[in-house]
Each structure stands twice: as structure tokens, then as C-alpha cells.
Design a protein around this nucleic acid. Structure first.
Length: 284
DNA sequence: CTTACGGCCTGGGTGC
DNA sequence: TGCACCCAGGCCGTAA
């Protein structure tokens, strides 16, 4: 599942080939995951790709409509969902099943978007609306100051797992990197954010950055479908310590890794290293 | 007001 | 061989 490190890896790959390219034509197959498919078909042909950015789990293609008059800017926002893949290839390359978007580029190559489940989303963000939309999101965990991080985590009375997954608190972290970070920081996913001690929040902050940077270095986690912009798998799944390891031994203490549902998500943790919060006492 | 929870979208993998 | 079921992330409506 593409989270921050996977999207960052894809963005870096696309950055090698897309900036400066012009989109010649657009072809769409299924469109139910595109906000306004007609607008995509209408607005993109002729545009120049000015930049490729990552914003949280979003990929942003900054586009120039250089049609003489103004230099109106807008972005194509791509969320890869769980199974989205975006890559460039030769037009004659075999079309992978579930490929729904094709952009012809002015260097003779093609940019394709493939998404088995179609949980991904594509939409156009016009210049004015873009900043308003992006403002809604939380801190980038790799750019945040520890002070801001602490304030965000303590701003709401929710479980730490729910807070880390909430894109309006921090942007870019998903289920894998939440569980991996909490394990390394030895914090149980059900702990309340407001109850974490300074020393725990410090450890968590450092750990999140460490995990994300390590994952970026290894080009992301390929658990099932994830491939980068060159069609290659990542390697961070080899470093997973809890994710999808239910019933296996903890790498630190050999206790049995458990799976529980927290914030509606499968959550893997070590019951020995990550102590559960005290249960609220039950009334008789 | 806050947070928790269930359902929905889709289709590949699993297990009977 | 077939098929019902589970699960994934984000979003939204509703419950507590």
C-alpha cells in the first residue's frame, strides 16, 4: 500500500523523466475514480509538466497551460489508494490489466495509471483551490519540528494509532509505518495520545522519521502490489518487525506478535514490548 | 462538542 | 472446479 515512502519513491522516479515533458493526448478507460474525467480529457492535452511533487500520500503533477495568454497553473492530484501504480513506458509496451489512464508524452513515451481495486483517486486542483485543499492536511512527518508534533498528538483525545493514521494530524503515514514505528518506540497502539509522556513522544517522533527515512532508502515496502515508477519492487518489507507477523516471534523479546483492530485497522504489536494502557475499570 | 464504529467501494487470495 | 467470504484505505453517516 503506497504510503509516504512509496509515494516519495514514485515521485523521485517520475521526476527523472516528467518535468519539461508536454502531454499530447489523454485516453481514459474506466473513470469512476476520477473526479471529473471530462475535465481531465479537456484540460491536460497541450499542458507542460512543470514539476512532480509529493504531498502526504498524494502525487502532484504541476501543469502549465502555456497557451499564449496567462501562465495559469494547476495540478493533477493522484492518490494511489492501495493498488495504484503510475509509470512511464514505450507506447507499444504490453498494457497491464486494469490500466485506466494513458497520457501520450512529447518524447514518444506514455504515462500510464494502473489500479486493480480503483481505491485510488485522481482529480484536478486549480490554482486557487489547491492551497485551500492542501491546507486541510497535517504536518509532513519528515519536515515537522518535534514541538509541533507533540502539540498535534496532544491536541485530541484519541488513541495514538488513530492519530498517526489521521492525515489531518500528520500527512503520509499509513498502517504499515504506524505499526512499525509504534513497535520500535515500544508504544501500544491503544494508548491515548494525550497520555504519552514527553520521553515517549520524543522517542516516537525520532522513530517515525527513522522508519520513514529507512523505508525511502529501501524504496518502500512491496507487500503485494506496490511497484515504483520504474516497475520495481521496494525492499523495506524485509525490515518489517510486526506488520503482517501475527503469531510470529517478536524480534526483540520472542513474545508472540498479536493482531487487534484499532481505529478500524489491523494493528500488529508485541504484547510484551508494547504494554497496553490500563483498562478503564469495569463497573460491577 | 468529541471520538468510535460500521458500511461502502473493488477484486485477488484463501479455504472449503 | 467453483464460490462465498475476507480484507485493504478513505470517507461518510450515525451512535454514544
Amino acid at each position: 500500500m503506497p504510503e509516504l515512502p512509496e509515494v516519495e519513491t514514485v515521485a523521485r522516479g517520475l521526476r527523472e523523466v516528467l518535468p519539461g515533458r508536454r502531454i499530447l493526448s489523454v485516453r481514459l478507460e474506466k473513470t469512476d475514480f476520477i473526479d471529473d474525467p471530462a475535465a481531465v480529457e479537456r484540460e491536460l492535452p497541450g499542458c507542460r509538466i512543470a514539476a512532480v511533487r509529493r504531498f502526504g500520500k498524494f502525487l502532484l503533477l504541476d501543469l502549465d497551460r502555456s497557451t499564449g495568454g496567462g501562465d495559469a497553473q494547476f495540478s493533477l492530484q493522484v492518490h494511489l489508494g492501495m493498488t495504484g501504480q503510475i509509470l512511464t513506458c514505450a507506447p507499444e509496451a504490453l498494457v497491464a490489466p486494469h490500466t485506466h489512464v494513458f497520457f501520450t508524452l512529447d518524447d514518444g513515451r506514455e504515462l500510464r495509471y494502473t489500479d486493480i481495486r480503483r481505491f485510488g483517486r485522481i482529480r484536478i486542483l486549480e490554482n486557487g483551490a489547491r492551497e485551500n485543499v492542501l491546507r486541510e492536511f497535517g504536518l509532513d512527518p519528515l519536515e515537522a519540528e518535534e514541538k509541533e508534533f507533540r502539540a498535534r498528538i496532544r491536541s485530541r483525545r484519541a488513541r495514538i494509532k488513530a492519530l498517526l493514521l489521521d492525515q489531518h494530524v500528520l500527512r503520509g503515514i499509513g498502517n504499515i509505518y504506524t505499526d512499525e514505528s509504534l513497535w520500535r518506540a515500544r508504544i501500544h497502539p491503544k494508548r491515548l495520545g494525550v497520555k504519552l509522556k514527553d520521553v515517549e513522544l520524543h522517542r516516537l517522533f525520532r522513530t517515525i522519521q527513522q522508519v520513514l527515512n529507512e523505508a525511502i532508502r529501501l524504496r518502500g515496502s512491496s507487500v503485494s502490489d506496490y511497484l515504483d515508477a520504474n516497475g520495481e519492487r521496494g525492499e523495506f518489507q524485509l525490515r518489517h518487525r510486526v506488520y503482517m507477523r501475527e503469531g510470529k516471534k517478536c524480534f526483540r523479546c520472542s513474545a508472540m506478535i498479536r493482531r487487534v483492530i484499532v481505529a478500524g485497522r489491523s494493528s500488529y504489536f508485541c504484547p510484551h514490548c508494547q504494554l497496553a494502557p490500563r483498562q478503564t475499570r469495569r463497573r460491577k
